[in-house]
């Protein structure tokens, strides 16, 4: 494990060593020879305002299918805001206003005719703090299929087992599916939340700092899991932890203060040879 400490606390040299080690040893980017994967989510000149304050400034991005895209940047740079735009989780915030274009398979997500509920059934989400429902493990995982009215169409038991296996949690909980999801440890709870997100079989999984509340061992498990998930799903992950981004992602987007997307490229390129000095400064720990 290369997780010695977060970039914020490591010195510059340490950070570089850790990142290059992670890149050299990283196997996550060997995801087949497909040269140009399809684009799933496209943003064009996307602006987001909270009241008068601008949170995102003209973001252009194309998120590839079946890849892990990491979004990094200092606090308050708009990375979570961008993530929550993709499945319209910002709708609940009254002061939030979105301008520009955000397309999911070519369909404008913010079109009048789009039902955010239907959109979120295609684009699942995992949150920063593990947030299982105060229900049984089984009911947590089955929740998505049930609210989507698909509990009758699919074999629910099989779907729950498949999701828990995909989340690498099945062996730990198979004998206690009826006990409360809140009885699990923090790391298990987060994997339960991942199982819950993938059970309805979405296309895209958005993850908002999914490992930031976990200890290093639980973090390693979640990272392995994310790597596996990219076989079937498109993963977009916001992270504070640059080593993590380097380890698990294929593409990295760097947002900097002001809500600007400064650089978006292959992860190795961003970390080894970024185009922008500001990005290099950020990655090597000179600021942020």
């Amino acid at each position: 494990m290369a997780t010695n400490g977060k970039a914020d606390t490591s010195s510059e040299e340490e950070t570089e060593t850790i990142i290059s080690t992670a890149i050299e040893t990283g196997e996550s980017r060997d995801r087949g020879p497909t040269e140009s994967p399809r684009t799933v989510v496209t943003a064009r000149d996307l602006d987001v305002y909270y009241g008068q304050e601008r949170a995102l400034d003209g973001v252009d991005i194309e998120i590839p299918e079946n890849r892990v895209t990491a979004i990094i940047g200092p606090s308050g740079c708009g990375k979570s805001t961008f993530l929550r735009c993709i499945n319209r989780m910002n709708d609940g915030i009254d002061a939030c206003r979105v301008d520009g274009e955000l397309r999911f398979h070519g369909t404008d997500v913010y079109d009048q005719g789009i039902d955010p509920v239907a959109l979120r059934r295609k684009i699942g989400m995992v949150f920063q703090k593990p947030n299982p429902f105060p229900k049984s493990i089984y009911d947590n995982v089955a929740y998505g299929l049930r609210v989507q009215g698909r509990a009758g169409e699919v074999d629910l038991d099989a779907a729950v087992e498949r999701a828990l296996r995909s989340a690498a949690l099945w062996d730990e909980v198979k004998d206690q599916l009826d006990s409360s999801g809140l009885d699990l440890s923090g790391g298990q709870q987060q994997r339960l939340c991942i199982a819950r997100a993938i059970a309805p079989d979405p296309e895209v999984i958005l993850m908002d700092e999914p490992a930031s509340a976990l200890d290093p061992i639980a973090t390693a498990k979640v990272e392995d899991l994310i790597d596996d998930l990219a076989e079937e799903y498109t993963v977009v992950i916001v992270t504070h932890n640059m080593q993590q981004a380097a380890r698990i992602s294929d593409r990295t987007a760097v947002f900097l203060t002001g809500g600007e997307l400064v650089e978006f490229d292959d992860t190795a390129k961003v970390f080894e040879n970024p185009d922008h000095d500001r990005v290099e400064d950020y990655i090597t720990g000179k600021f942020g």
Partner: peptide
């Protein structure tokens, strides 16, 4: 609020979140 967010994130409607998550909790 995290529980409501989780419900919305799974494609639940406001009614489903209110009655299926908030009330039981």
């Amino acid at each position: 609020d995290e529980l409501r967010q989780a419900g919305y994130g799974l494609g639940a409607t406001k009614f489903e979140v209110s009655t299926g998550i908030v009330v039981p909790a």
